[in-house]
Design a binder for these strands. Structure first.
Lengths: 107, 107
DNA sequence: CTTATTCATAACTCTTTGGCTATCAATTAA
DNA sequence: TTAATTGATAGCCAAAGAGTTATGAATAAG
């Protein structure tokens, strides 16, 4: 069973990669050059990180001329939140925040 | 910036470790021996995984005689869900901005 | 007291991975 | 056409990490 949350956890475990994802969440659509200027690593490093994020279904890319724009995939974090909800449901410590978030992400 | 969600993401990135955490969520309090019987790795391997989970604040331990019982830490996944909510809030806010813009353009 | 059990730590191996530089294909500008 | 820019890929290397066996400390049992 190759669950959807496994590559997501893997992808978000690295701080550099998570920072790139956070920036995409915060500022929206970005070119590789823009992300490279801000991330503390080389351009090939950024490209590799973006490939991992894309593979995990967290981001999508759009080609425009010679530049590639990356943006957050819609409902990217849903498998993660669903998993957390399942775990929380097990130990019955119902988190109101979680239920609220699940409700908002279901739309 | 050593945020609380960083060690959590790291800890949950490994499938063996995540399986241990899932079992603790599902079945509650477990001894190391019980977890070892079920995980596909050696007892020292399980102990090491449990140390990582504990360090991340995901589980807590309780000593009873010569055995150690592990269980899920209360609100263990809250930093994770909070982070996800924050990320979701970012693109949600963008959507609001867009709706706002669209609304203003209607007039 | 001696032996068995339970778990943690130490020490090691091997794989994965995150970083780099070099380079290439594709596109745009001169 | 030629030169410059953008980003992806290849290849390499060092560090991290997940696994192992061996062993030690603490407790329980005989």
């Amino acid at each position: 069973m190759a669950k959807a949350h496994d590559p997501i956890f893997r992808a978000l475990a690295d701080p550099t990669r998570r920072a790139i994802f956070e920036r995409l969440c915060h500022d929206g659509d970005q070119t590789v050059a823009a992300l490279t200027a801000y991330a503390g690593v080389s351009q090939p490093g950024v490209s590799k990180h973006l490939a991992v994020l894309k593979q995990a279904g967290l981001v999508c890319d759009r080609h425009e001329g010679r530049q590639t724009h990356y943006s957050v995939q819609r409902d990217a974090l849903k498998p993660l939140v669903d998993w957390a909800g399942q775990m929380a449901g097990f130990w019955e410590g119902k988190l109101d925040d979680l239920e609220d978030l699940l409700g908002r992400m279901d739309q």
